[in-house]
Design a binder for these strands. Structure first.
Lengths: 225, 225
DNA sequence: CGAATAGTGTCTGTGAGACATTATCTT
DNA sequence: AAGATAATGTCTCACAGACACTATTCG
C-alpha cells in the first residue's frame, strides 16, 4: 500500500455519546464543527486517527470521549464502520463509529452550549453533515436492541439509583412503558444489582438505592431460543 | 490528513466465509496466503481497499467473496473493525471484517484444496496469522447470537430445503439440540417459509420442501422484553 | 412387516402482563 | 388524614419444552 501514498483513504473515529436529559429522554451530544467543511454546524464529535499517538481505534475513541465529557470509565462500544468515496466530498474515507453511554450530565445546559456542544433528543436530531444522521440512527437501534435483553441502560444512570429510576431509563431507551411488577421480577432474577445502605429520601416514601454489582457490569436477560 | 502521507494506516477488508460441510458442521473458508508475511499459511481471504476501484468497503468485501466462491447474492454483513499498531507487524492497520453465510459448497473437497483454500470446522481452526483467530471467533459469536432470534441460518442452506435440514442447520450453528415440535411451531409462527410444490424423495417418507418467502429474507423471532 | 424419517397432538411448568393491595413517607 | 410514591402479591393466559403418537415411504 506504499506505492501510491497520496491515494489513501482517510481514517477517523466518530463517537455517538448518549445520555438522558432532565426529562429522561435519550439524547445525543453534538459539537459545533470548528473546521471546514460545515464549519459551525453541529456534528458528532470525532477526529482523524493519529497512528503515532493512538495505539488503536478504541484508544482514539476514548480520547474523544474524554475530551468531550471528562469521563474515564464510560460504556464505550464499537458500532460500525462507515466507508466510501462519497460520504465526505473531500476524499474516500472510513469512519469507525463508536457509541458511549454516560450518566446524566451534571454540567448545566448553559456551560454545555458555552463550550460549543449541545444535547439533542435522538428523535429530534436536525440534518447533520456527512452521514452522521445515519450513524446516530444505527447507534440508537443498537442500544434499543440490546436494552431488550441486557443491563446496558444502567450505564446511563449515576453510581446509585432507585428501581423507579432504572425502569424509567429502560422506558426511555425502549420507547414504551413497562409493567412495574414484571420489571422488578426480571431485575431480581438477573441478580446484577445490590442494595446500598442509604435510601433516597424525597417528598414521599423513601426508596431503596441500588448499584450494579461490581462483577456484573453487563448482565444478560434470558433470550428465548 | 494530507500533510504526512507516508504515515498512513493500511486499510483492508477480511471476510469470514461460513458454510456447512457434509457433516453439517459450521466451517470457515481459509485461503493459502500468496504473499509475505506468512506466505503459504492459511488465513482469511481479504485484500487492501483500493479507493480508485471500490466505492465502499461493502463492495470490496463483495468482490473478495465473489472471487473466492463465485457467489453473487450471499448473506454478507459487516462484523467489526480490527485496528491497531501491532496487529500487523508491518504497519498500523485497520481491517474491516465481514462475515458471509453461503450455502453448502457444491465444489468437491479436491478442487477446493487445488485452488488453495480449505474448509475448516470453526472449533478446530489452527493458529492463524495476525488476529484472524479473533476475527473468526467474533463472527461465530455473532452468528450464534443472531441465530437464537432470527432466520439468519437459512442462508447456509440451498434454495430449497426440508424442515429437518433447517433444524439441523440451527443445531449446528447454536451448538445444541432443539425440540422438533417447538422448532416447527416457531418456524410456523414466524411465517417466513413457503412450500414448494416438489417433495424431497429419499430412502424413506418424502419430506416437504420449503424456500424463504421472497419478501422475508431475514425474519426475526420474538424476543422477550 | 419392520425400520426409518416426516409430521402432529397433548400435557405441563414457567413466566410475563395486568392489576390489586399493602407499606411508608411528607404535609 | 390525604396524597404520593415504594414495594409486593395474585391471577391468568401464552408459550416453550418434553414426549408420545400417527403417517408415509422403502426394502
Amino acid at each position: 500500500m506504499s506505492e501510491n501514498s497520496d491515494q489513501q483513504a482517510d481514517l477517523m473515529v466518530d463517537v455517538v455519546i448518549l445520555t438522558l436529559n432532565e426529562s429522561a429522554r435519550l439524547c445525543v451530544l453534538l459539537t459545533k464543527r470548528k473546521e471546514a467543511p460545515f464549519e459551525g454546524s453541529p456534528a458528532l464529535p470525532g477526529r482523524y486517527i493519529r497512528i503515532d499517538e493512538d495505539v488503536d481505534a478504541d484508544e482514539a475513541a476514548q480520547k474523544v470521549l474524554l475530551s468531550k465529557t471528562g469521563l474515564k470509565q464510560p460504556y464505550l462500544e464499537q458500532l460500525y464502520t462507515f466507508t466510501g468515496r462519497f460520504r465526505d466530498a473531500r476524499n474516500w474515507s472510513a469512519s469507525i463509529a463508536y457509541f458511549a453511554l454516560v450518566p446524566m450530565f451534571s454540567l448545566s445546559a448553559q456551560s454545555d452550549t458555552a463550550r460549543g456542544y449541545s444535547l439533542v433528543p435522538v428523535d429530534t436530531v436536525p440534518k447533520l453533515p456527512f452521514d452522521h444522521n445515519e450513524i446516530i440512527a444505527k447507534a440508537v437501534d443498537r442500544v434499543r436492541g440490546k436494552a431488550a435483553y441486557t443491563s446496558l441502560p444502567c450505564h446511563l444512570l449515576p453510581e446509585t439509583f432507585t428501581l423507579a429510576d432504572l425502569q424509567s431509563t429502560y422506558e426511555a431507551v425502549l420507547g414504551h412503558a413497562l409493567d412495574k411488577s414484571s420489571f422488578r421480577r426480571k431485575v431480581d432474577d438477573l441478580d446484577f444489582l445490590e442494595k446500598v445502605t442509604e435510601m433516597r429520601v424525597g417528598k414521599h416514601r423513601p426508596a431503596q438505592l441500588y448499584r450494579i454489582k461490581p462483577s456484573r457490569s453487563l448482565a444478560f436477560f434470558d433470550r428465548t431460543v
